[in-house]
Design a protein around this nucleic acid. Structure first.
Lengths: 148, 148
DNA sequence: ATAACTCCCACCAATTAACTGGGAATAAGA
DNA sequence: TCTTATTCCCAGTTAATTGGTGGGAGTTAT
């Protein structure tokens, strides 16, 4: 059920861009701030660029910017772009659906569908803007979610 | 966010054991039924045995049995045993917590905590017995979950 | 005694994750 | 126009994980 470092780093970068939205931010600066290898981050940022989430400006004084307001970029979109699949099993993935020979009688499909829905319910409801606010006051709502 | 074949195969095996609870079932029989490599399944069943979820009986006519009613074995327990970690990131894992240098100011921790809670909310509420019922009538509830 | 089992442990192959490296193209400023 | 800072592009590498194989010892019903 792991999320890759790509998504982690990508989200960190977007959070950083969101809080420096007035100017273009070079990859090097983000990499230093979050101790991520620059070359690796470059790749991640390129992927985000290709997905239309950020724009890159080359040359001196260049860097990256968000293409939209941080509140309009949701985490689910970012993870899908960087990690690929979101579903716990291929048989319930819209990203790379894999047919399963046991499907007609498989009680597990229901489980995986629900799991996927639960995950998507969280990450598609959370925007980059939400991640920029300090986490302190959110502790209450975390508890209320897990107790449901 | 993937679940491994270990968990998938393990759950399938438990479902099979649950529907043949009156007799000991050999690994070979389960493996044939679900087209899983026998030797691989053996390992998985051993892990489940070591975790106290099933018992093994050696010798002719031997095989495996559930130690509890299928309704008392939840999916979360099984996945934790076979896959290890459940959390999307180490910083919110109770299984193998990894300290993160950015924790105090990291908005992502809240996100991963919520994601983990959402996953656990599904899989810890689902028992092996739930997976044994034919999935047909559950389609309605799947849709209602995903549309929410 | 034999056959059908579990149990135990070591090894292996393929895939994926997480980088690393070398540059070419572009743009701003001296 | 030269230098410098940047993105852009693509290929290679290393380490860990996943998904298995293989061989055989120990146990038990017939």
């Amino acid at each position: 059920m792991n999320v890759s470092t790509k998504s982690e780093y990508g989200l960190r970068a977007l959070i950083y861009l969101a809080s420096n939205s007035h100017e273009a931010v070079p990859a090097r600066e983000i990499a230093e701030k979050w101790s991520v290898p620059v070359k690796y981050l470059e790749q991640i940022l390129k992927t985000l660029k290709d997905a239309g989430i950020i724009t890159g400006q080359v040359g001196v004084g260049g860097g990256y910017r968000l293409t939209r307001a941080a509140s309009l970029i949701n985490v689910g979109e970012v993870i899908r772009v960087l990690d690929g699949r979101l579903a716990p099993m291929g048989c319930v993935s819209s990203y790379d659906y894999e047919e399963c020979e046991f499907e007609p009688t498989c009680g597990l499909k229901t489980l995986w569908t629900r799991t996927r829905a639960a995950i998507v319910g969280v990450i598609d409801q959370t925007s980059i803007a939400d991640l920029c606010t300090p986490p302190r006051q959110s502790v209450v709502s975390i508890k209320s979610v897990s107790r449901r």
